[in-house]
Nucleic acid binder design. Structure first.
Lengths: 325, 325
DNA sequence: GTGAAAGCGCTAACAC
DNA sequence: GTGTTAGCGCTTTCAC
């Protein structure tokens, strides 16, 4: 346990540098349109450095009228490492604009989002899925900028993933495609976005729409789905993600069947354990870097009152071919 | 995009309720030792409600001298869902004390922790592993309470997991135990904690110490480790976690061997996909609820200047028997 | 029982 | 070029 210590204030710095506190503020914030002599500048910077001065965030926020905190509300889902890439990119991009990203895990017993925003004095919030209307309203009243989420760009970013899954299967000769939808309600929206991609592919290539079956991660459930696809003469299935694909693989095994001979299976996300399944799982790899960067831009735009450019962020999806297809 | 709106202040509430702003503060904070008539109380509460009033966090922090923000620094590791359980519990426990938990992902290009703490004006920080001395020092100067981390209770919580893995293998007749250490440096510390548990078991039961081999998630690396164990006549291996165990299973398969006949394998964490491997993976399930609660207590203690009670948090580990052992 | 007044540490007009 | 001054919205001591 380490104890609090007394913190130097901007006035302390001013005293140490022999200038007024205002000057300190100007120098430290690099305020444009001010003319501070290089000498003064240095003295202030040195004094600050020497005292180990850090501006007091709350005081600054109070005075300036806006904080530099951006809150990201993350769903309590077993989201993979790729999400972390996006968060990282988002944090870095925001930091370049002087903003600090913190995340908050939404949980069943947790406090409502507006309350959390108020507690941290966030000036902007974003999430992975759209917030409901009441929440948005409450946030607006708090003066928080709500950055439009998933449905605008994340969603669009998901679709090419499904598209690529289907294209891959079709290019390998499969004519009757299945889709494995996860049962977990939290994945609903994302899954539908990806599914749309495979539907598009089927339509464009003149195939019948995919046979959509939902499954949990229980072997029995997956085995049932497998039976369903077989009876519809499906020969290749796109799974929402690699976890779901693993369930399908297990379901096949349970029935004494095997991939890709009896049913080809392709996952998505390319999680670290995908190469370890039996047979190794073909998957889609992509990166959310750009999505993070775009969302950061949207935050900046929102904060300065502009409408963000809703350009489409590419996730550069690509097939990682292994032996399950 | 939603725009900021004007926020009601405590003075607005005072005006609406026809009392002084001081009274509003007293009522809203339920200040002990004050005698506010029930009537006034109600009027204030109603007015606040009616205006949709929310105290301004920064102003409160500035005036009170301490914020109610607790920052959790989380490592950029593919940590599983069980970590989320702990975070959730931590957040809820802290909320009961009026504290708000936010997390920050530490990334390679990210800002240093003290800077982030300063930006959010955290009054306490915690992490999963001990912070280095410089960081602690910087944090102290900021007046942030540093809650002692992992090494104190998380570490102790990890050990029984390894213990149970070994006990399980030994109880099933294995006399020569192996340990699969992950190569990822971020897991080092936790892995060593778990390993200690298996060493204890071997010592206590009069066996030779485990044959420790490290492996990545590459099949080739895992296959090499398998060869290593076989050559040392190891018959059962405890893997650091389920991911690592999956690699070992794949390594076995690669060599045309199988679990548990040639080598029994037990994982840890019981991730959702563990039942889906071939053969289904025996694992250790536990819950970090109590760890979260304990850490919350440590935060409260630290914030009030007391040394925390370093009681041992049980994670109730238990074996989930499947066919890999 | 309730209110007046003095800050908390900082920003930003506006003087000099 | 640099300093004076007035708050930002809240807590808290002390007087009524």
């Amino acid at each position: 346990m380490t104890r609090p210590a007394k913190r130097p204030t901007s006035t302390d710095v001013a005293r140490a540098a022999g200038v007024s506190q205002t000057t300190v503020s100007f120098v430290l914030n690099d305020r444009p349109g001010q003319s501070i002599s290089e000498a003064t500048r240095r003295r202030v910077l040195d004094a600050a450095q020497g005292l180990g001065y850090r501006p007091h965030a709350s005081a600054r926020t109070l005075a300036a009228g806006r904080s530099d905190i951006v809150l990201l509300s993350v769903p309590d889902l077993p989201v993979g490492a790729s999400i972390n890439r996006m968060i990282e990119e988002l944090a870095v991009s925001l930091a370049e604009h002087g903003l600090t990203l913190v995340t908050h895990l939404v949980s069943a017993h947790g406090r409502p989002l507006p309350e959390v925003c108020a507690s941290v004095d966030a000036s902007a919030v974003l999430g992975f899925e759209p917030f409901d209307q009441d929440t948005v309203e409450a946030l607006r009243r708090l003066g928080v900028t709500v950055v439009p989420p998933a449905n605008v760009d994340h969603s669009l970013a998901m679709r090419p993933i499904g598209r690529l899954q289907a294209d891959h299967l079709i290019s390998r000769g499969h004519q009757r495609i299945g889709y494995a939808l996860p049962e977990h309600p939290g994945f609903r929206r994302m899954a539908e976005d990806r599914l749309r991609g495979v539907m598009d592919a089927c339509t464009d290539l003149g195939l019948a729409p995919p046979v959509v079956l939902s499954t949990s991660l229980e072997i029995a459930a997956a085995a049932r789905a497998v039976t369903g696809w077989m009876s519809e003469s499906v020969t290749g299935v796109c799974a929402f993600n690699d976890d779901t694909a693993m369930a399908v693989l297990a379901g096949l095994r349970e029935q004494g069947l095997t991939a890709p001979a009896d049913l080809a299976v392709i996952g998505a996300d390319d999680i670290p354990t995908s190469p370890l399944t039996a047979p190794p799982l073909t998957s889609i790899r992509f990166d959310l870097h750009e999505v993070g960067r775009r969302r950061a831009e949207a935050v900046i735009a929102g904060l300065s009152g502009r409408e963000p450019h809703l350009t489409f962020a590419s996730v550069n999806p690509q097939v990682v071919q292994r032996s399950s297809t």
